[in-house]
C-alpha cells in the first residue's frame, strides 16, 4: 500500500528531517506514528500524499512513485486530516465544507451528498449541517475537520492529533469513526501524543526520533525500552503502566484487554 525506500528528506533550511528511512505499510493496518515534536512524524506523513517528495530514495503509493503524481491525484488514495481545523475551514456552511473534498475528487452530486451525510453523521454534526463552521465550538470544528477528510472515502486515512482538545464525547465520535474505517478495511495512521487513545485502536507502533524509525513494533514490545521512550518523549499508556506495576507480563490496549490479563494473572498467582 505505502512503501518508503531509503527516503532522505532535508528542508530548505538544511534541517535533515528524514534519514534513510524505509518502511512498508499494508492495506488495513492500524498504525500509531509517535515521537516528540520535531522527530519527523509530520514530514514522514506528508510524504504519503505527495505534499513532500523525497530528496533521495522513493515513496510508493499503491506501487506508484509519488514523484510522478500530483497531490490532487494522490488525494484519491490518502486522506490527511491536519491538526488545526482553523487552518482549513473556509466554507459558509458545515455541509459545504465537507463536500469540498469529495467534489474535488470528482464524485457526482448525488455521491457527494451521500458522502457528506454519512461523514456528518459519523461525527454527530448532522444537526449543524447548515451552520457556519465558525459558529461551532472549537471541539466541533475539530470534528468537522476530521469529517471533511473522512468524507473523501480514501483507502488510507492519516489523522494528525485527532483527539486534541476533545472531551469524552468527541473522543468517542472519533473512536466510532475509526471503527468504521477498520471494518471497511482502510489503512489508518494516527499521529498522536495521546497514547491512551492510540492503545485502544492501533496494532502497530512506529516510534520516531531524530528523523528515523527507532522502533516498529506491536504493543507487547513497543514500550519495553525506557531509554528509547525517554528519547522519543513518550510515556507508556496508563493501562500498560498499570499492568507492569501489577507484574502482568502482557501489555493491554483496552480496559477489556486489561481485565482479561489481570484475571489470568490473578488466577495464576492464587494457584
Amino acid at each position: 500500500m505505502l512503501r518508503f525506500e531509503s527516503v532522505h528528506f532535508t528542508y530548505p533550511g538544511g534541517v535533515e528531517a528524514l534519514i534513510d528511512l524505509s518502511l512498508s505499510i499494508e492495506q488495513g493496518e492500524r498504525i500509531a506514528l509517535v515521537g516528540e515534536n520535531g522527530a519527523g512524524k509530520s514530514t514522514l506523513a506528508k510524504h504519503m500524499n505527495g505534499l513532500l517528495k523525497p530528496g533521495r530514495g522513493r515513496v510508493l503509493v499503491n506501487g506508484e512513485d509519488t514523484r510522478r503524481k500530483t497531490v490532487a491525484q494522490l488525494a484519491h488514495i490518502v486522506g490527511y486530516v491536519f491538526q488545526n481545523p482553523d487552518e482549513q475551514l473556509f466554507s459558509n456552511t458545515v455541509q459545504d465544507e465537507v463536500a469540498f473534498g469529495p467534489r474535488n475528487l470528482g464524485f457526482s452530486p448525488q455521491e457527494v451528498e451521500e458522502m457528506v451525510r454519512s461523514a456528518l453523521e459519523a461525527v454527530g454534526l448532522q444537526a449543524a449541517a447548515s451552520e457556519h463552521p465558525y459558529d461551532l465550538l472549537p471541539a466541533q470544528r475539530k470534528l468537522l475537520g476530521i469529517a471533511s477528510v473522512y468524507a473523501m472515502d480514501t483507502p488510507v486515512l492519516v489523522l494528525d492529533e485527532p483527539t486534541m482538545g476533545l472531551d469524552l464525547h468527541g473522543t468517542r465520535m472519533v473512536s466510532s469513526l475509526l471503527a468504521d474505517c477498520f471494518s471497511a478495511g482502510k489503512t489508518v495512521i494516527l499521529i498522536s501524543h495521546d497514547l491512551d487513545f492510540c492503545a485502544e485502536h492501533v496494532e502497530r507502533y512506529i516510534i520516531m526520533a531524530d528523523g528515523a524509525v527507532q522502533l516498529d513494533a506491536g504493543i507487547d514490545s513497543a514500550f519495553d525500552d525506557p531509554g528509547l521512550l525517554e528519547r522519543a518523549g513518550l510515556e507508556p499508556p496508563q493501562l500498560a503502566r498499570l499492568a507492569r506495576a501489577l507484574g502482568i507480563q502482557e501489555t493491554p490496549g483496552t480496559v477489556v484487554d486489561f481485565l482479561a490479563m489481570w484475571e489470568k494473572h490473578r488466577r495464576r498467582r492464587s494457584s
Binding site: L51, A72, A75, F82, E87, Q88, F100, N104, S148, V149
Partner: peptide, 14 residues
C-alpha cells in the same frame, strides 16, 4: 499549512 491541507483535500492549485 493551509495550502498543504487544501491540496490534501484534492484542491488543484495548478
Amino acid at each position: 499549512t493551509i495550502l498543504d491541507s487544501q491540496r490534501a483535500r484534492g484542491l488543484e492549485t495548478e
